[in-house]
């Protein structure tokens, strides 16, 4: 296990990238299908956190775009507040980056 450490970590990071991508697509394709979002809420939450952790501001904003209304309409008020605030920060970062560019 020790010999393959780098390889293992690379598998982990690559698969994390794909995991975030899959659930972002899922949320965008299911944006009006509450039961689809509800079913995968725990994974959407995980993927969202990884997007934050990896400073993928654009992905964070897209997640929010896809799920924000669902949180508002289906009683996930805490998630609405927390995701909303995080997404707002991400959008600010995006704006700053664009301004700096």
């Amino acid at each position: 296990m020790h010999v393959a450490r780098k390889q293992i970590q690379q598998i982990y990071l690559d698969s994390r990238h794909r995991y975030v991508g899959y659930y972002l697509r899922y949320s965008e394709e299911s944006t009006h299908l509450a039961y689809m979002l509800e079913q995968e809420l725990a994974n959407l939450q995980q993927a969202f956190h990884w997007a934050i952790e990896d400073n993928k501001h654009e992905l964070v904003a897209r997640f929010w775009e896809a799920i924000g209304d669902f949180f508002w309409e289906h009683g996930y008020w805490q998630n609405y507040l927390e995701w909303g605030e995080t997404a707002l920060n991400a959008i600010r970062q995006l704006g700053r980056r664009e301004t700096e560019a």
């Binding site: 293992i8 598998i11 698969s15 794909r18 995991y19 991508g21 994974n43 939450q45 990884w50």
Partner: peptide, 27 residues
């Protein structure tokens, strides 16, 4: 098997994912 197991560690425990999600994640 190791590659799949590492990939599955991203999924929420006790919730996991469908085969479609796992295939997309594990490649």
């Amino acid at each position: 098997g190791k590659q799949l197991l590492i990939s599955m560690a991203h999924f929420a425990p006790g919730v996991g994912g469908t085969s479609e999600a796992i295939q997309a994640t594990s490649d």
